[in-house]
Amino acid sequence: LRTVEMKKGPTDSLGISIAGGVGSPLGDVPIFIAMMHPTGVAAQTQKLRVGDRIVTICGTSTEGMTHTQAVNLLKNASGSIEMQV
């Protein structure tokens, strides 16, 4: 596991798309980074990659989380965001 910290302002975009989660079209698979926009906050860290499994978001485990719950957690996060992948 590695921990990645990002700074995100209220109008900034992380610039990632995620897939997976409980009840997702892919089945109940762990949440992972499906796409990254090169100008997004996540890409700027140069520490995240497409395919990385997201284990925690700001200390909250993604295990058993639906896709929608994970998306909302990421969208609503601002300031210092910590992810374990």
Rank of each mutant, 00 (worst) to 15 (best):
Met6Tyr: 01
Lys7Met: 13
Val41Thr: 10
Ile57Asn: 01
Asp52Thr: 00
Thr11Gln: 13
Gly51Leu: 04
Leu74Lys: 04
Ala43Arg: 05
Val85Ser: 07
Pro38Ser: 07
Met36Asn: 00
Lys75Leu: 09
Glu5Trp: 10
Thr45Trp: 02
Leu14Ser: 02
Ile54Thr: 01
Thr11Tyr: 14
Asp12Met: 07
Lys7His: 14
Glu82Thr: 15
Ala77Thr: 13
Ala43Cys: 07
Ser13Trp: 11
Phe32Ser: 11
Met36Gln: 01
Gly15His: 00
Pro10Ile: 11
Pro38Glu: 10
Thr68Val: 11
Thr56Pro: 06
Ser24Gln: 02
Pro38Asn: 06
Arg53Asn: 13
Arg49His: 14
Asp28Pro: 06
Ser80Leu: 12
Gly40Cys: 05
Lys8Ala: 12
Lys7Phe: 15
Ala77Asn: 11
Leu73Gly: 02
Ile18Arg: 02
Glu82His: 12
Val41Ser: 08
Val4Gly: 00
Met35Thr: 15
Thr45Asp: 06
Val41Arg: 07
Gln84His: 00
Lys75Gln: 13
Ile33Asn: 04
Asn72His: 13
Lys47Val: 08
Thr39His: 13
Met83His: 02
Thr11Asp: 15
Thr56Met: 08
Gly15Ala: 02
Ser17Ala: 12
Leu1Cys: 09
Leu73Asp: 03
Ile18Asp: 00
Phe32Tyr: 15
Asp52Lys: 01
Ile16Tyr: 02
Gln69Cys: 08
Asp28Phe: 09
Met83Lys: 02
Ala70Asp: 01
His67Trp: 10
Ala19Met: 11
Lys47Thr: 07
His67Ser: 15
His67Leu: 13
Thr66Lys: 06
Ile18Lys: 04
Ala77Pro: 08
Ser78Val: 12
Gly21Asn: 00
Val85Phe: 00
Val22Asn: 05
Gly20Asp: 04
Ser78Phe: 06
Gly20Ala: 01
Asn76Leu: 09
Leu14Phe: 12
Thr11Ile: 10
Met83Gln: 00
Glu5Pro: 03
Thr60Arg: 15
Ala34Tyr: 07
Val50Leu: 07
Lys7Ile: 14
Ile54His: 05
Leu48Arg: 03
Arg53Gln: 15
Ile81Tyr: 01
Ser13Phe: 14
Leu26Ile: 13
Met6Asp: 06
Glu63Pro: 00
Arg49Ile: 07
Arg53His: 14
Met65Phe: 01
Gly15Ser: 03
Phe32Gly: 05
Val85Cys: 06
Glu82Phe: 09
Ala34Gly: 11
Gly79Leu: 01
Lys47Glu: 12
Asn76Gln: 13
Leu73Lys: 10
Leu48Tyr: 01
Gln46Leu: 06
Arg53Met: 13
Arg53Lys: 12
Leu73Ala: 10
Asp52Val: 01
Ile31Trp: 03
Met83Leu: 15
Glu5Leu: 15
Ile33Lys: 05
Gly20Trp: 03
Met65Gly: 03
Leu48Ser: 04
Ile33Tyr: 02
Gly79Cys: 07
Cys58Phe: 07
Ile18Cys: 02
Thr39Gly: 15
Pro10Gly: 09
Leu26Glu: 14
Ile31Lys: 04
Lys75Cys: 10
Val71Phe: 13
Met36Tyr: 00
Asn76Gly: 12
Glu5Ser: 15
Ser24Asn: 05
Lys7Thr: 12
Arg49Thr: 12
Ile16Cys: 02
Ser17Ile: 14
Leu14Lys: 01
Gly9Glu: 09
Gly15Val: 01
Val29His: 06
Ile31Ala: 03
Ser17Asn: 12
Ser17Gln: 15
Thr39Phe: 12
Thr56Asn: 11
Glu82Gly: 06
Leu74His: 06
Gly79Asn: 08
Ile16Glu: 02
Ser13Asp: 15
Pro25Tyr: 11
Glu82Ser: 14
Ala34Ile: 04
Asn72Gly: 10
Ile81Asn: 02
Gly15Phe: 00
Arg49Lys: 14
His67Gln: 14
Ile33His: 02
Gly9Tyr: 07
Gly9Met: 08
Thr56Trp: 00
Val50Ala: 08
Gly40Ile: 01
Asp28Thr: 05
Ile31Cys: 06
Ser80Pro: 12
Glu63Tyr: 09
Thr62Met: 06
Ala77Val: 12
Pro30Glu: 08
Gly27Asp: 05
Thr60Val: 13
Pro38Tyr: 02
Ile31Met: 12
Ala43Met: 08
Ser78Ile: 09
Gly79Phe: 08
Ala77Lys: 12
Val41Cys: 08
Ser24His: 06
Thr66Arg: 07
Ser61Lys: 12
Gly27Pro: 01
Gly64Ala: 07
Pro38Asp: 10
Ala19Ser: 11
Gly21Val: 01
Val85Gln: 00
Pro30Val: 02
Val55Met: 14
Gly9Val: 06
Ile81Lys: 01
Thr45His: 07
Gly21Gln: 02
Gln69Met: 11
Lys75Trp: 07
Ser61Gly: 06
Val50Gln: 09
Ser80Arg: 14
Thr39Trp: 13
Met6Trp: 05
Met83Trp: 04
Leu48Glu: 03
Arg49Trp: 07
Leu1Asp: 05
Phe32Trp: 08
Gly40Trp: 00
Val22Leu: 12
Pro30Ser: 06
Gly23Asn: 09
Val71Ile: 13
Asp52Ser: 03
Gln69Phe: 04
Asn72Ala: 13
His37Gly: 04
